[in-house]
Nucleic acid binder design. Structure first.
Length: 570
RNA sequence: GCGGCGGUCGUCUAGCCUGGUCUAGGACGCCGGCCUUCCACGCCGGAAAUCCCGGGUUCAAAUCCCGGCCGCCGCACCA
């Protein structure tokens, strides 16, 4: 790096200077972890989002739908999701060497007791009472502090009405799953997608646009039947995945291996075929943003690196300047963790019912009880006894009966054997209930903005050319008169208006030399520049110049706009 | 959060050590004018700096001291 600015600095400098992004609240000194998107950044981001929609929703419209749910979320949701518990770390600092420790782990190790669920105050007291000291330097420890990465707020004027800004969009998909599933005529598999703002109160964000306290997330929660998951449409997205497995990481390997999507599933490297499928979609999406495949791979997270809800997670890593490999997406197998949690806390039935092709009849053993006898014998305790008898194992009753005992004892109640009977009956089962499993591909949009700029940034002969793929370029067309003179100016302005009217994001520029204007347009990645020159008034033709090759073609004035449309959609 | 380094027009920077000559200089960019028949041409003019913020020392602070904020690096932390 030294005095020579590295690429990252140049990208960030360009971003600020030309209006892609900059630190928020700059006039007040800025706040770490917050960035504004400027005019070009906003356009680029919305193009990235449009492309994501295309890959993850439009091209999967037979199974994925998009919804929108609130950022502000009542506390109970995060109790159910485990975020309140798992997003909170009790941390204690050594007063001398300033090293930080997880207070709970420290106490559990030192005192060999379980402290799960204890408050910070209790943990502090335990440290004081048992004289737990810094394991490194032996000095006193400070107060136990709680770090919760959820931003807290209140709903209405009631401070007891706690709420949090969501740290992921996912919970909105889980809490509305039942409704969406119904709306989608109870079909599985079902993907619910959402694009929206999320907030995480990072303890100390670094890395500029890479680690933000508030950002836009693009997620799909993909619900399927764990027993009959169906077949991913590999004809749409298949091929190979570059993967660094957890095993390989433990062995000390650093580079990924290549596996076919199906192969990875068959060999158990990816635990679920849908997880593998969405990774293939993610690979192509990132490629479409201009990242070559050798600058990207998937890394399996080790158990301690995974979120509390996941049983297997892969991060999609992309190489950018300065920060090296950064995570642009996460692919988590969440199982039924979330729906289970919400069932428990809401009391709602979030299971899915699936009819069998044919109803199944099966023989089951049921306990029949003579309620008259029970009633007379146990009076007001009868209800309790009946409930116990219902839940008790039929084998236990059969065993007692076969031994010829005169009564069966359950939790202190002596039930006469004559009042109980085990019968085998035929039961007709028309289907089964289950909790769907979920795989989740999840992307951070702002990181992708940075990633795209970093990959697009090139320098040619002292000038910057932002080689963003044409279909995500913020501005598609620049219109110039060769020199700022009539009739060239009028013709150019007319063409410019026509382009705007046709929905092509375009700029008009007539200041300075033509070379300077090409350079200005190149710097922000405008793929095509149309120049009105002295030949135009004569034969009604203009030149179209392509950004990366600087090649020019002459086309008729009347067909320019449709030509540009074709070119940028290619 | 700890430690190190840094923060001056839009951008990059000179000045800071050795306080006054700084009404803060330059380059690029930007704006206006002239010029210009295809890749940052040239000429003229212009706008543009809370010298990161606050306090202190001093007759005098961009410059020295303290605190804070922000950034980078290292450590710690990281759903």
């Amino acid at each position: 790096m030294s005095r020579e600015h590295d690429k990252y600095d140049k990208v960030v400098e360009l971003a600020k200077r030309r209006g892609f992004f900059w630190p928020s609240f700059e006039i007040y000194g800025g706040v770490a972890g917050f960035y504004d998107l400027g005019p070009l950044g906003t356009l680029l981001k919305s193009n990235i989002i449009r492309l994501w929609r295309e890959f993850f929703i439009t091209r999967h419209m037979d199974m994925v739908v998009e919804i929108e749910t609130p950022v502000i979320t009542p506390e109970v949701v995060f109790e159910a999701s485990g975020h309140l518990h798992h997003f909170t770390d009790p941390i204690v600092e050594c007063t001398s060497c300033r090293r930080k420790f997880r207070a709970d782990q420290l106490i559990e190790e030192a005192l060999n007791v379980k402290v799960e669920g204890r408050s910070a105050e209790e943990l502090t007291r335990m440290i004081r009472e048992n004289n737990v000291r810094c394991p490194f330097c032996g000095s006193d420890l400070g107060e136990v502090r709680v770090f919760n990465l959820l931003f807290q707020t209140f709903i209405g004027p009631y401070t007891q009405n706690k709420a949090y800004l969501r740290p992921e969009a996912a919970q909105g998909m889980f809490t509305s799953f039942k409704r969406v599933h119904k709306v989608m005529r109870e079909k599985l598999p079902l993907g619910i997608a959402q694009i929206g703002r999320v907030a995480r109160n990072e303890i100390s964000p670094r890395q500029g646009m890479v680690r933000l306290r508030e950002f836009t997330i693009m997620e799909v929660e993909f619900f399927f039947d764990p027993e009959e998951p169906g077949e991913p449409p590999l004809s749409r997205f298949g091929g190979n995945l570059r993967i660094l497995t957890a095993d390989a990481k433990v062995r000390g390997e650093e580079g990924p291996e290549t596996y076919g999507v199906e192969e990875a599933v068959q060999e158990g490297i990816i635990k679920n075929k849908w997880l593998a499928y969405w990774m293939a979609v993610a690979r192509d999406f990132i490629k479409a943003l201009g990242v070559p495949e050798n600058h990207m791979y998937f890394e399996e997270k080790l158990p301690h690196e995974r979120a509390h809800y996941a049983t297997q997670t892969f991060d999609q890593l992309v190489r950018i300047s300065r920060w090296g490999w950064i995570e642009v997406s996460g692919h988590a197998y969440r199982g039924d963790y979330d729906l289970q949690g919400h069932m428990r806390y809401s009391g709602q039935d979030l299971t899915v019912f699936k009819k069998f092709e044919k109803p199944v009849t099966r023989k089951v053993e049921k306990v029949f009880v003579n309620k008259v006898v029970i009633g007379k014998l146990f009076k007001e305790k009868s209800a309790e006894v009946l409930k116990l008898l219902e839940s008790v194992d039929t084998d236990l009753i059969k065993e007692a009966l076969s031994k010829g005992e005169s009564y069966i004892e359950i939790k202190g109640f002596k039930v006469p054997a004559s009042a109980v009977e085990v019968r085998v009956i035929e039961e007709k089962v028309v289907g089964r209930k289950f909790i769907p499993h979920v795989v989740e591909p999840s992307f951070g949009a702002e990181r992708l903005v940075l990633m795209v700029l970093d990959h697009a940034y090139t320098e040619e002969e002292e000038r910057v050319v932002l080689k963003v793929p044409h279909h995500i370029a913020p501005i598609k067309l620049a219109v110039f008169p060769l020199v700022a003179k009539e009739p060239l100016v009028s013709i150019a302005k007319e063409l410019f208006s026509k382009a705007l009217a046709e929905g092509i994001p375009a700029i008009y520029d007539d200041s300075g030399s033509i070379g300077r204007r090409y350079a200005r347009a190149d710097e922000v990645g405008v793929p095509y520049a149309v120049t009105v020159d002295y030949q135009t008034p004569e034969d009604k033709t203009v030149t179209i110049r392509e950004r990366d090759t600087r090649a020019q073609v002459r086309v008729g004035l009347s067909e320019v706009v449709s030509r540009i449309k074709e070119l940028v959609h290619a």
